[in-house]
Design a protein around this nucleic acid. Structure first.
Length: 423
RNA sequence: GGAGAAGUGGCAGAGUGGUCGAAUGCACUGGUCUUGAAAACCAGCGUACCGCAAGGUACCGGGGGUUCGAAUCCCUCCUUCUCCGCCA
């Protein structure tokens, strides 16, 4: 959510910035400002009436104390009109307030100045590429054939137990998962991220805090009986650790990491893009989250990008880094870099990580602030990224490191897998 | 799941209908004193919103209600503690 203060002060910049998303903010901004003005006027009236009520009430208290019953009762009569006014004004103010919030929820984050205008993924900029496409002396197999051949993942079994998109990892397939999780956590630890094991179900307030709610509830699994949501990413519980938090001073740089399964309903997706590990309802991911002073936001983003790059390099995967265009950048993000690894057998790029800065968009909702040098409360910046999501990494590892005999495991994983080859 | 108790400022802890946004202590900040420190003493010390300001409004777990007036009474939800039951 954008701060109302900012909408008041930077109206033109916001409208201009959101054009990069092909989002016409002008009508919403205009309505926000007009409701905001009306709200302030009504609020002023309400407070005036409340103030008069308070004065009379105090007077009545004093009069009763002095035993002046008659005068007190006379004063009581005065309040009748005020009371009616007060409750009318109060409901007007509440209604305006709700309208305002509902409108503000519709405004996406303003893209960073580096972000190019664009409509879809076709307009994303490739800012870096690493590695080269592996050469095979044979026709490489797609990962779903490799997992089948070596009995690593059983998709059919998952269908039996739960449904499509819930695979069962077996034997070396399961061990590879565990190894990758350990590897990612250890690498995050080396870079100063504190490991957390958060809840996998969150309440409604947390959903609002990070922006999954309102509007995106259809993408989350919902436990009706207890009014809880299964997390779509560890970002939700990790970031919400800092909901309603005031950091005592401006010397902070909070780095969190956590491994969790992630649950996504992915309603409406279908086709060959969802084959095998490409898209699942339940998958594993190690997430990194940062809470930063606004002045360190850019630096933090670069550190996160470096981190993800080093992970991919240690796994020996060819990758490219994209800076998403306005239209492809998520609603809450000011800037997002996507990491894609090349799948040799599928002959396409697979998204394996998304690193974003949110500036104050999340912290406004979260009420996550710090005391600045002037002892004033100021909003923190939040950032997060996947480091990394497992399924497509597994797909790329299996496909790109395959030989005619089996699959070579990258050396950085050996100490976690306990084996060097799948064959 | 059942029965009972409780939720007040950074912490501890008063306050059970009327100058209570809230005593007191601790912590913290500034000052006096001291060569320095401690102690002692003095002063300050919650958050948000509106306002140029003066000031005003709201907040005593969340929400709702009664009343001229609610931290205080009522309803409801949440959380914590104790006992019982169940359980990896």
């Amino acid at each position: 959510m954008l701060e109302i203060q900012r909408i008041r002060n930077e109206k033109e910049e916001i409208i201009e910035g959101l054009k990069k998303r092909h989002f016409d903010a002008a009508p919403i901004v205009a309505e926000v400002l007009s409701i905001d003005e009306e709200w302030r006027a009504k609020k002023g009236e309400l407070e005036l009436v409340a103030s008069q009520m308070n004065q009379i009430s105090k007077k009545i208290g004093v009069l009763f104390g002095q035993g002046k019953q008659d005068e007190a009762n006379a004063a009581k009569a005065e309040t009748a009109v005020l009371k009616t006014q007060e409750s009318a004004l109060k409901s007007e103010v509440d209604e305006l307030d709700q309208k305002l919030v509902a409108l503000m929820y519709q405004l996406p984050n303003v893209p960073n100045s580096l972000v190019k205008a664009g409509k879809s993924e076709l307009d994303n900029e490739t800012v870096e590429t690493f590695g080269s496409t592996p050469e095979f002396g044979f026709k490489p197999l797609p990962h779903w054939e490799i997992t089948d051949k070596f009995n690593l993942i059983d998709f059919e079994l998952g269908v039996k137990i739960t449904g499509a998109g819930f695979p069962v990892y077996k034997g070396k397939g399961a061990k590879l998962q565990r190894a990758l999780i350990s590897f990612f956590l250890e690498e995050a630890d080396k870079r100063g991220y504190e490991e957390h094991i958060p809840p996998l179900l969150v309440n409604e307030a947390s959903g609002y805090g990070t922006g999954q709610l309102p509007d995106k509830e259809g993408q989350m699994y919902y436990v009706n009986e207890d009014d809880l949501y299964l997390i779509p990413t560890a970002e939700v519980p990790l970031t919400n650790i800092y909901r309603n938090v005031m950091l005592p001073d401006e010397n902070f740089s909070i780095k969190l990491t956590g491994f969790t399964p992630c649950f996504r309903r992915e309603a409406g997706s279908y086709g060959k893009d969802v084959r095998g590990l490409n898209r699942l309802h339940q998958f594993d991911k190690v997430e990194i989250v940062r809470i930063e002073h606004p002045s360190n936001s850019e630096n933090a983003l670069n550190e996160m990008i470096d981190h993800v790059k080093s992970l991919l390099e240690k796994l020996g995967l060819q990758y490219r880094v994209l800076r998403l265009c306005g239209g492809d950048t998520g609603f809450a993000a000011a800037m997002t870099y996507d990491f894609e690894v090349y799948s040799a057998a599928q002959e396409k790029w697979l998204e394996v990580s998304s690193v974003s800065r949110f500036d104050t968009f999340q912290s406004t909702r979260l009420k996550l602030r710090f005391k600045n040098a002037n002892k004033k409360a100021q909003l923190c910046h939040t950032l997060n990224g996947s480091a990394l999501a497992l399924p497509r990494i597994v797909a790329a590892l299996l496909e790109n490191h395959q030989t005619e005999e089996g699959v070579n495991i990258p050396e950085s994983l050996h100490k976690f897998t306990g084996f060097e080859k799948i064959d």
